[in-house]
């Protein structure tokens, strides 16, 4: 119970911080970045449940984001339905796809699963490019309408920010609940040793599939948010490159840590921003930074900086104590 109450404290603090964040951000652009981070964070949270807790890697997560984004885009632009229906459909379709492919795919282990999900992601992207009647192929779907609440269109960065921030906080709460639940305990057992978990009566296959479906639904949900935020979807946004970026977010932030996933999403986006002005050298620097962080903080930024800050703050106090 202590763990749970601590989680609620942190969640309340995060929600409060998210609520006041736009007040201190200097520009629309900074809020735009915050929205992008929020959307990525939702995907990363789902992926982190899968990777960090259930120990299953996915190199095809971008496909679920793409499925959500295209579901929303097509329903709202071509069928003229409300974006909210698109959002629900995006999440549902993401989860449903995960349920369908997860059954067979999750029979694979380790690197085989990585390749399986990667192949799935590639196929989904090829379909987005080739199924022009539905997806408009490489032209992309334009003019995706914004959400609206009681007649108020969420067409400014600020309004969109509050929707995304609320979604992200909900996603964090959801992930926290999953981890504290029976499923979460079972998942950790699966991660520790699948064989041991199975022999002690845990239905590993079912739990893995549940988490996979959940991560797919969260990705689809985020994809829908992306579609209505960017007002445009294109197959290039949902390829292998983005899948890799998502895995980087999770590991860079710190696996098996909810805040790690959120921080990873923020870190990847913001490091990218800082490097923009280097133009063609930005890729070199980004690669070097990524290597350096993982070498020096193998458990990710979240735990890594906790250690670092602990050492910085603690060294004075601890030093004194040692002398005493």
């Amino acid at each position: 119970m202590r763990v749970r109450s601590k989680r609620y404290h942190q969640l309340a603090a995060a929600a409060a911080a998210a609520a006041v964040l736009p007040l201190v951000l200097p520009s629309e652009y900074a809020i735009h970045l915050a929205v992008v981070i929020g959307i990525n964070a939702i995907v990363a949270l789902g992926l982190n449940l899968l990777m960090g807790y259930a120990g299953q890697v996915s190199l095809g997560q971008a496909a679920f984001v793409g499925i959500g984004a295209y579901a929303s885009a097509i329903l709202s632009v071509k069928a003229g339905l409300s974006p909210w229906i698109g959002l629900a459909a995006g999440a549902a379709l993401g989860g449903l796809t995960a349920a369908v492919v997860g059954g067979p795919l999750l029979k694979l282990r380790g690197h085989y699963l990585a390749m399986g999900t990667l192949g799935f992601g590639m196929i989904v992207q090829i379909v987005m490019v080739q199924w022009e009647d539905l997806t408009e192929g490489t032209i992309g779907v334009m003019g995706i309408p914004p959400f609206s609440v009681a007649g108020l269109a969420l067409d400014s960065e600020l309004r969109m920010y509050y929707l995304v921030a609320a979604s992200a906080v909900l996603a964090i709460a959801l992930a926290g609940n999953v981890i504290d639940s029976r499923v979460g305990r079972a998942m950790r057992a699966v991660h520790g040793s699948e064989v041991a978990a199975a022999t002690s009566g845990v239905d590993t296959a079912r739990y893995k599939l549940q988490v996979f479906i959940m991560s797919g639904a969260m990705a689809g949900f985020a994809g829908s948010l992306h579609a209505h935020h960017a007002a445009y979807v294109h197959p290039d946004s949902f390829g292998f490159h983005y899948s890799i970026q998502l895995v980087v977010m999770v590991v860079l932030g710190g696996m098996a840590s909810i805040w790690g996933a959120v921080f990873g999403a923020g870190a990847v986006t913001l490091i990218g921003e800082q490097l923009r002005s280097f133009q063609e050298f930005s890729t070199i620097i980004f690669g070097a930074v990524l290597v350096a962080v993982m070498v020096f903080m193998p458990a990710g930024l979240w735990r890594g900086s906790a250690d670092l800050i602990g050492r910085l703050l603690g060294s004075r106090g601890a030093g004194g104590r040692r002398r005493a």
Binding site: P26, A30, A34, F263, E273
Partner: peptide, 11 residues
């Protein structure tokens, strides 16, 4: 993060 967002926001 807020500092980085601010830095990124001020071109």
């Amino acid at each position: 993060v807020v500092a980085m967002l601010c830095a990124a926001g001020c071109g």
